[in-house]
Amino acid sequence: MYTNDQKQHLQFAPGHSVIITLRTGLIRAVLFTLIWWILTDGAMNSWLVGVPVVLFATLVSVQLLPPFSWSLIGIIRFVPFFLWRSLYAGVDVARRAFDPSLPISPQMYHYRWRLPPGLPQVFMANTVSLLPGTLSAELGDEFLYVHVLDKTGAFASELMILEEYVADLFGLKLITDRSEE
């Protein structure tokens, strides 16, 4: 049993009804069925075990991770962006590691959140660590603390772009600028 305090950070999508829960359960059941099919190579005699396992996993999943909003278009836009930038990140860090002069100048950067707390923030924090030159070091209420490998790089604008992609993925609209308020 989680305390209310712990549950709160996941419930950013307000007002889910029974229908949304059922729909989410159905989608996850299909996903888990697909995973079971992949694991067992589609063996027919495996479903005797598979059906109860998929049902149990779905039940646990819906319990642990409440339904959240997401957008298919957002996902389709995010995947190529992520693949390309993470490949670039690998090349970038490999170049720095092999370079005899070790060209790094670390800095801790405070990035002000525009995303709502919960799954979107966690998703962004995890993605940040796989993109060029950035590593999420702490997830605060107001800021994401990002360790930057090279402070001369254009990491700030990159983080803004990433945040927009993540917002798209979860079907959210970002508040454009806080400093104007």
Partner: peptide, 27 residues
């Protein structure tokens, strides 16, 4: 409180671990 990252990781992985356990049981 262990922080949202660990919490989310466990929430994502636990159903998958159940699937994997079921698979190992069958296989």
């Amino acid at each position: 409180f262990p922080g949202p990252v660990l919490s989310t990781l466990s929430r994502l992985l636990v159903p998958l671990l159940i699937m994997a356990a079921g698979y190992l049981l069958w296989v």
